[in-house]
Design a protein around this nucleic acid. Structure first.
Lengths: 251, 251
DNA sequence: GTATATTGTGCGATATACGAACAAATGTCA
DNA sequence: TGACATTTGTTCGTATATCGCACAATATAC
C-alpha cells in the first residue's frame, strides 16, 4: 500500500498517544507495542519522539504523558466556536435550576463533553470537557443518535459494547431503536439511572440556524431529589429555552 | 540529520494540530504551511491524514478539527492520577469557601489547568482542564515558578512575553524575581487583578509525600467582594489544609 | 543461575519528504 | 468585463528517512 496522501508515521504516533488511558497511565515500550499492534521498534521511535518533543517523560523504563499533550485537545476546544458560545448559557442554566448542565457531541459510539457547568457533584466519575460516555445509555447520546438516520444509528449501536451499568440499563438493540423513535418524536430523552444508580438526566438536541443538530444539552440530577418522572416537567422548558436562544447564534 | 530514533513525520503532524487555535479555527493547506513552516505538500499530507483518521473535517478548502482530537488530551487527563486525586478536594474546597478552586501544573511558560471546581463565573474567559494562562501573572504560576531553581525561573521569564493585561500587571523581570522570592518565603502567592480587572486569586504549592512541588492550588474571587488584602486571611488556611491532606496521597 | 521477558541496534526494502513545475482558482486593476 | 498577477492546490521524480525484521544485549523473574 503506497498511499501518497497519507503519513503513516503520523497515524502510528497518534495511535501511540491513544494507548495511554485510565488503566494504562505509564507504559513501557513493549506495552505500547502490544496495545497498538505496532512493531516494537516503531513504538519505541514514536515514544522517543514524544519524549524528545516534551509530550512525554521517560525514566528509562516507562513513558508517561506530560501536560503538554493537552495542547492538542485544547487546539480543538479553543478553535471550535461551539464550546465558547454554549458555555455562558450552561452557566446560567445550571445556576437557575441548581443542577449540572452540559453540552456534548458524538464521536463514534461515544458522547464527548465539550462544555459543562457543574453544581455539586452527583456522579461518581468526574465529567469535564473531553470526557466520554457511551452514547446508548446517556441522555445526550440518545438525543444525538435519534437525530441521525435510523440505519446509521443502528450501525453505531451495533458497534457499541452494550454493557449494563445498572440493573436499569437498556442493552437490547431493538428496544434501544424503539427508544430512539420515542426520543425523536417527543424531542427529548430522559435517562433513569441507566448509567449510574442515583443519577437521572434529561437532554434535548441543539440545532443550528439551519436546523441541523450540532450538539445536545442536558441537565443531570440526583434521583433522590428529582425522580425521573419529574425531570421533564421541571427541566424541559429551561433546556428548550436555551436551545431556542442558541439556535440563532449557531451558524 | 538522520536521527534514527525520531519520527519526523509524527512531529510534523503534531505541529499541524497545534497550528489550530483560538484565532485559527479553520485553516486551508497554505495557512497551515505558513503557520508551521512546513512545505505545502507536507502540510497537505498531514492534514489529509488527520481527515482520513477522523481527527479533522475537510470541505475541499478548509480543515477543521473534530472532537475526536479530544481523545489525545483525554489520554493525559484520564491517565494521570493527579487530576483525579485532586478533583474531589477542589469540589469540597470550592463549596466551603463559595469561590472557584483550581489545580494546575506548568508547561513551559504557561500554567495548565488540570482540575477545577467552579462557582459562579467571575472571569471573562472560561477556564477548564487544558486551559492555559501565562505563568508570570497568575497566582499558580508564581507559586510554580517560585518552586523551581532561581535561574530556571529567570530563564522561563525571559522566554515569556511579559504583556500587561491590566494597569497592575507586573512585567519587569527583576521585580518579578523579587516577587518570586517573597512567594517562596511566605509559601503562597496573591494576585491582585494583574490578569483581569476585578479578579483576585491566591495560590499555594502542592507537594507530594517526598516534598517535591507537583502542582499548585488556587482560589479565585471577585475583587469587589474580597479585596486582595483579605485573600490570605480568608483562604490561606483552607488551601494549606487541602495541600496538607493531599501531600500524603501523592506519590 | 538459568529462564524469560524486555529493550537496543544494524540492515535491506520500502515509503515518505522535498522542491519544482504545473494546474486551478482567486483577486486585482484598468 | 477582460487580462494579468497572485495565491493555492496537486502531481511527480528522486534523494532520503523510516519500517520491520532478526539478532544482540540487557534487565527481571523464578
Amino acid at each position: 500500500m503506497q498511499e501518497t496522501d497519507f503519513v503513516s508515521g503520523f497515524a502510528r504516533g497518534l495511535k501511540v498517544i491513544e494507548a495511554f488511558g485510565e488503566t494504562t497511565p505509564k507504559l513501557a515500550i513493549a506495552d505500547v507495542a502490544k496495545l497498538t499492534g505496532l512493531d516494537r521498534a516503531t513504538a519505541r521511535r514514536c515514544l522517543l519522539t514524544l519524549a524528545e518533543l516534551g509530550y512525554a517523560d521517560y525514566d528509562g523504563k516507562f513513558f508517561v504523558l506530560t501536560p503538554k499533550i493537552l495542547r492538542l485537545g485544547h487546539a480543538y476546544l479553543s478553535a471550535t466556536p461551539l464550546p465558547h458560545v454554549v458555555q455562558p448559557f450552561l452557566d446560567k442554566l445550571s445556576e437557575e435550576v441548581h443542577q449540572s448542565a452540559s453540552a456534548s457531541v458524538l464521536d463514534g459510539t461515544e458522547v464527548v463533553y465539550i462544555a459543562r457547568a457543574s453544581q455539586k457533584r452527583v456522579m461518581s466519575i468526574n465529567l469535564m470537557p473531553g470526557s466520554r460516555l457511551p452514547a446508548y445509555c446517556a441522555s445526550m447520546g440518545r438525543v444525538l443518535l435519534a437525530a441521525m438516520p435510523e440505519d446509521e444509528a443502528r450501525t453505531l449501536l451495533k458497534q457499541s459494547v452494550l454493557k449494563a451499568f445498572t440493573p436499569g440499563t437498556k442493552t437490547d438493540p431493538a428496544l434501544l431503536m424503539e427508544e430512539l423513535s420515542r426520543v425523536r418524536e417527543q424531542g427529548y430523552a430522559v435517562i433513569d439511572q441507566e448509567l449510574e444508580l442515583g443519577l437521572c438526566s434529561i437532554a434535548v438536541p441543539l440545532e443550528n440556524d439551519r436546523g441541523r443538530v450540532v450538539a445536545a444539552l442536558n441537565i443531570g440530577a440526583p434521583a433522590a431529589s428529582v425522580p425521573a418522572s419529574e425531570m421533564a416537567e421541571r427541566y424541559l422548558d429551561p433546556l428548550k429555552g436555551v436551545a431556542r436562544l442558541l439556535k440563532s447564534l449557531l451558524r
